[in-house]
Amino acid sequence: MTQAAQQAPVAGTGQDVLVVDGLVRRFGDLTAVSDVSFRIAPGETYGLLGPNGAGKTTTISMIAGLIAADKGSVTVVGETMGPSKVIPKRHLGLVPQDLAIYPDLSARENLNFFGKLQGLTGGDLKKRVAEVLELTGLTDRAKGPTKDFSGGMKRRLNIGIGLLHQPTLLILDEPTVGVDPQSRNQILESVESLSVEGMAVLYTTHYMEEAERLCDRIGIIDSGVLQAEGTRDELIQLTGGVDHIQLSGSGDTTAAAEAIRALPSVARVDAERGRLQLTVHDAPRAVAPIVTTATSAGMQLSDVQITRPNLESVFLHLTGKALRD
C-alpha cells in the first residue's frame, strides 16, 4: 500500500492535495449529495465506494469543477475549485466513465492531441507519450486506430490521457466498468503504481475488491451521504470486528458446543444439525484451540470454514442492504 504519511506536502496546501467540505447538490427535489466531506493527502489513494446511484459521479463532478455545488467547498492544492476556475483544474487529471478518445486516431495520435491541449510540446510531449503508452500497456498497439481496440484497451488509453500532464490529483470514475478481466488487472496495476510516484488518486467504484486492493482510505457513500470513512481495518471495526467459524461434522456436537463456549476467544455458539456456527475474535488465532476442543469433546470434524468481515459486511452494517442492491 502507499506511504502517504512519508510524502512531502504539496506547496500551499499543508498536508492535503484535496479538501472537500460539506458538499451538497440538489436536482429539483432530489438531494444527490448531502454534506460530503473528506481529504486526500499527497501520494494517497482514496476510494469512494458505493452502488450505482449513490452520488459518486455527482461528487467528483463538483470536485472537478464541472458542476457547481449548492453548498460546501472544494480546494485543490489550496485553490478554490468551481466551474469558472482555471488554476485548480490544471492540477487535475479526470478520467470519466464515458470514453473521451477519438476513434479514428491511433493511441499515439490521441495522446499527442490531448498532450498539446494540456500544454506539452516537443521533446517533453514525446517523452510523456512514450511513458504513458508503456504504463498503460499500449506500446505495441500505438499506431492502430483506436476504433479497433477492445473495451479494456480504450479504458487504458482513457486513463493515459488523464495522466499525460502528470496531475497532482488524478480522478478515476469507475475505470474498470465493462472491461475484460485481463484489462481490469492491468488497469489496477497501473493505478497501484501512481501513488508510489507521489500522485494523489480519487478512485470511485462499486467493486469492494478494488477498493480493498487499491485504497489507503475508503469513504462509503450511499444515497448521497458519506456513511463512514477510514482504512479498511478501521471500517471493519464498525461491524464489531468479529469473525465467524463454521464447524461441520458428526459425533457429540452438543458437548463440543458447550466446551467451545468456555473458550475466551468465542463470543457465541449456535448449534445446528451436524454444524456449529461460531462468532469469534481473531479467527486465525482462535481456530486451532477451537478444533482441538471440539475433537476432544467427541465431535468428528469434516469441514472448517472461516469467514472474516469485509467491506461488503461494513456496507450491510451501515446501510442495511448489500453493496450491489
Rank of each mutant, 00 (worst) to 15 (best):
L157P: 01
M81R: 00
T139C: 11
T319S: 09
P181N: 15
G230K: 02
G241P: 05
T279C: 05
E212T: 12
L170S: 02
L263F: 00
R308N: 11
S193D: 14
D98C: 02
V191S: 06
L263I: 06
I159V: 15
A41R: 13
G162F: 02
R25Y: 05
I87L: 14
I87M: 13
L125K: 01
T254Y: 07
G65K: 02
G72M: 04
T45G: 06
T204Y: 04
A286I: 03
I171M: 09
L263E: 03
V266T: 05
K116E: 14
G122N: 13
G137M: 08
A322C: 00
K126P: 01
V132T: 12
S84N: 14
V196P: 00
K85T: 13
A68S: 15
A262W: 04
S313T: 15
K126C: 06
T231N: 06
T80D: 13
G43H: 03
T80H: 14
T45L: 11
L318E: 04
V95L: 04
Q97W: 07
K89T: 06
R275P: 07
T254E: 15
P42D: 10
L18H: 00
L157W: 02
L120W: 05
L138D: 04
L235M: 08
G55N: 04
S84P: 04
Q15H: 10
M199L: 09
A54K: 02
S183G: 12
